[in-house]
Each structure stands twice: as structure tokens, then as C-alpha cells.
Design a protein around this nucleic acid. Structure first.
Length: 419
RNA sequence: GGGGGAGUGUCCCGAGCGGCAAAGGGGGCGGACUGUAAAUCCGCUGGCUACGCCUUCGUAGGUUCGAGUCCUACCUCCCCCA
């Protein structure tokens, strides 16, 4: 990647400045295209889950920036490819998803996208086609005649992703091998249907995207482009978007706003600057100021990161409330009303609810055994009092203003709300 | 088709003379220290109606007082020969 490349287009300028760019097939060519104002680009998303999580956020932001800088984003749903199963799932038995599930997942994903992109019929409006539209109608013989003959197995075998698998004697199924072809075909199809000339994706998608460009050339499409974003990990090497509790979902019903805010608030010092650039839209000058903060001061930057990132997904009002909840909880040690909560019957408390059961009910631990262990380790608190005895019982006397506060460690709190 | 090897705690990697809830890592969680950070140190890391009971070592049987460990068949993966 030439570091001295000076983009003329806003799109590439933003991508480069903010750290979204890993590789591009033709920076100068793409720059021109972007500058002309009618850049149409796509990223593919499979429909294997009911929503999207932070792991996809960089891709989502790429499309968002594309739209903000005058391009037209296409979020391609892999409704067709999802029907076949996840190819790279080396462990998980690839469960075949029913069409209803896929359709439901698509809806969930669309809900997420609607927060980041403007959809519609206009020139710069985002669209969300589904590759089931064309893959489903595909006939094997026709596909081989018209598309298959353009693929060079020699070339595909030489691709890093494939070569690695072969060298390591790892299974590479025919299906998986074909995924590349389908993905390449998607690209060409999107070019035909919508004039799409750029496919973006994570750096692991590079080979697949290039294969699409290649296919496009052989099938007479105009010049297509590839652009990838770096594969993100935290400063200590963990994958983005996964925590022990599960994925960091971009949907309130799957992950409460407060916890989403907390996810960003708890990032490592070394990640703050990078994340501010990637996951907020603050001006770079402001980010530069924030990331220059030293020592404990950096916490201010983390709060800004958390609030800005949360505002984009859940709205500013909810983000500010999460921020306020965190302030009350951590800085004042007060009982914040808006912590995540679990309803519980009044009679249950009045009869005396065992602490073990209560923590399981709150979802802070997964079993009573774990609750016992946590109590031994001093990790559980009721109303900020460490639970010393596993036989402790929560009674009416523990209720303040209709709630009992349960905590696991210093950071995870859940309110039992009496109903 | 013939010969050889492997599948272990449902996060991963990996030890395991017939007495095993099963060594050791990594990861994760909790505690201490901090700044809701990192690093470091300590503890925990099958379940339950819990001084006891139940379920775990690819699957199904068998031998044995007792099986992850021995035998048989099957499944899956790898290597060598054809």
C-alpha cells in the first residue's frame, strides 16, 4: 500500500485517515470513480444470525461513510448462500437454516442497517438485495457454461486461503471451494443489475473479491475494484465483538444499551484512539485531543467513545442515559434506576428468596454451583454487600424502592424489580 | 482394497500404570493492586434438592468388584502402500 497516495475523493480520504483501509486493488482508479460521485459499492452479509454484532461494525461503517461521501451503498444479504450452510464453519455442525429463519434473520439485520443507512429508491439511497434472487434460479449446467468456464482452478489453488488449507492438510470441501465462485458471481450480478463496481469486506475476503473482479473482466464487465478493511482485534489480540457473555449485539433486545455502552467504556487504553476513528464520527482533531490524554485522563476519552458509539446504534438519548447510569453506578456508588433489570414476583421475595437462586434468575451466573463458587471467591454482592454465606436469603428487608441490587464483580449489576 | 495412527473435561490445546470429576497450559470468571485500563499476584473454571447423589473421555456393546485406560463392532479424521 503506497503511503504517499493522496486521495482526491472524500470517500478514500476518510477511509485512509480513519484507518479503514487495508488493501485496495487500484487506489487511483477507485479514487477517480469515487470522485465522480457515482460510486456504487457493496458488502455481503450472511443471514446466519438474527442480528449483527460489533464484529460487523467496521463493514457497516464503510457503507455508512460511502453514503455520507456521496456514494450508493449496497448491503447484500446472503440469503442464497446461507441456504447452503456456513463454509468456513470448521467445527460447528453446519445446521441448515430453514427459509423462515433466514427470512427472519434478514429482517433483524435490516433493522440494524436502517440505523446506519438511508434506504430508498433514490440515487444515493442504500439498497438491500438478496442473492437468493439470482442464486436460487441458477441452473447447474447453465452456470457451468456461462460462468464456470471462466474460473481457473489453477488460479484458485494458488490463492493464499486455499494454499494454506492444502498445505496444512485441512479439509476443504467442494462446497466451500464453490463459495468463492458464488461470491464472485454475486459481484458480477450486482454490477449488471445495479452498476456496482466495488466490493468491500474484511481482509480475509481479499481473495474472494479479487476472484470476482477477475470473473467480471472475463465476462465483459467494466473495471471492478476491491477494497478491504483490516481485521480488527483489540490491542491484546482478542477478536472484536465477542465477550465471555457472548456477542456484542447491535440490538437492544439482544444486548441492553447500558451493556453496549459498557463494552466501549471498558476498552483498553491503547485502543481508544483507533476505536474513536473507526466507530465514531467525531472530527479527527477532536479525536487527536482525546487520545492524547494521559493516565487516568484517558477515561474521559473512553466515555466519549462509549457515548458516541452507543448513540449511533441506540440513539443519543439512550446513550446519554447509559452514560448517566454508569456515572451513578461507578462514580457515585449510587443505585441507578436504569441498570438492567429482571422482574420478580413480590410474593417470591416475601417468602424469602435464596441468594443462589436469585443470582441465577438475574442471569449473573449460569448455575447455582457457579453462584456458590463466586460466593467463595467473594464475587457476589446484594445491595453492595458481599454475600458471605451461600445460604443467605433475600427478604422484604432487602428491598429499597422496589428493587434489590445484585452484583457480580465490580462491573456487572442487575436489579431485581418487584412486580 | 492392504498396513499404521488418532478422537479426552461441549471454549481451545493437551497428559492420562485398571480405582478418575480425570495432570498441565491457553482462554474465561472472581479477588488484590489500579483508573470501570494494561501488566502482575492469588483463587475458581461438570451439574444437583450438596459432608451425599448424578452425568462426563468419538458411538454401541463386552470383560472386571471397578474402565478414559483392556476386548469387539461401528463412525470420523490423518499417514503409508496399492
Amino acid at each position: 500500500m503506497s503511503d504517499d497516495f493522496r486521495p482526491a475523493s472524500d470517500f478514500l480520504a476518510v477511509l485512509i485517515e480513519r484507518g479503514y483501509l487495508h488493501q485496495c486493488s487500484d487506489l487511483a482508479g477507485l479514487d477517480q470513480k469515487a470522485k465522480s460521485g457515482d460510486l456504487i459499492a457493496y458488502i455481503g452479509f450472511d443471514c446466519t444470525a438474527a442480528s449483527l454484532h460489533v464484529g460487523s461494525l467496521v463493514q457497516i461503517m464503510l457503507l455508512r461513510w460511502l453514503q455520507k461521501t456521496g456514494g450508493k451503498p449496497i448491503a447484500l444479504m446472503g440469503g442464497g448462500t446461507t441456504q447452503v450452510g456456513d463454509p468456513s464453519g470448521k467445527d460447528e455442525s453446519r445446521k441448515l437454516l430453514s427459509l423462515e429463519t433466514i427470512a427472519a434473520n434478514k429482517e433483524g439485520i435490516k433493522r440494524v442497517f436502517s440505523k446506519f443507512l438511508d434506504f430508498g429508491e433514490g440515487k444515493h439511497d442504500a439498497i438491500m438485495p438478496d442473492n437468493a434472487q439470482w442464486l436460487g434460479a441458477l441452473n447447474y449446467i447453465d452456470f457451468l457454461r456461462e460462468v464456470g468456464r471462466h474460473f481457473s482452478v489453477n488460479r484458485m489453488l494458488a490463492m493464499d486461503s486455499v494454499k494454506m488449507r492444502l498445505e496444512r492438510d485441512q479439509e476443504l470441501s467442494f462446497l466451500e471451494f464453490n463459495y468463492m465462485c458464488l461470491q464472485a458471481y454475486d459481484f458480477v450480478e450486482l454490477h449488471k443489475r445495479h452498476g456496482c463496481v466495488l466490493q468491500m469486506g474484511g481482509s480475509d475476503q481479499w481473495g474472494n473479491i479479487i476472484t470476482g473482479i477477475d470473473l467480471g473482466r472475463r465476462m465483459g464487465a467494466s473495471q471492478l475494484y476491491a477494497l478491504t478493511s483490516p481485521l480488527l482485534t483489540t490491542a491484546s489480540g482478542a477478536k472484536m465483538g465477542k465477550t465471555a457473555q457472548g456477542a456484542v449485539w447491535l440490538e437492544e433486545s439482544l444486548l441492553p444499551t447500558f451493556e453496549y455502552w459498557q463494552y466501549w467504556r471498558n476498552c483498553e487504553d491503547r485502543d481508544v484512539g483507533r476505536f474513536l476513528k473507526l466507530f465514531t464520527e467525531l472530527p479527527l482533531s477532536e479525536i487527536a485531543r482525546l487520545e492524547a490524554l494521559d493516565g487516568a485522563e484517558i477515561n474521559e476519552a473512553k466515555k466519549v467513545l462509549a457515548t458516541e458509539a452507543t448513540a449511533m446504534v441506540h440513539g443519543r438519548a439512550a446513550a446519554l442515559q447509559a452514560s448517566e447510569t454508569a456515572r451513578q453506578t461507578f462514580e457515585e456508588g449510587a443505585l441507578a434506576e436504569s441498570l438492567p433489570s429482571v422482574d420478580i414476583g413480590r410474593d417470591e421475595i416475601e417468602a424469602g428468596l435464596g441468594a443462589l437462586a436469585a443470582f441465577v434468575k438475574a442471569g449473573l451466573v449460569t448455575s447455582t454451583s457457579e453462584a456458590r463458587r463466586q460466593i467463595k471467591g467473594g464475587g457476589l454482592k446484594i445491595n453492595d454487600e458481599t454475600v458471605a454465606d451461600e445460604r443467605a436469603v433475600i427478604g422484604a428487608g432487602d428491598v429499597t424502592e422496589g428493587v434489590v441490587k445484585l452484583s457480580l464483580g465490580r462491573k456487572r449489576h442487575v436489579l431485581l424489580k418487584l412486580i
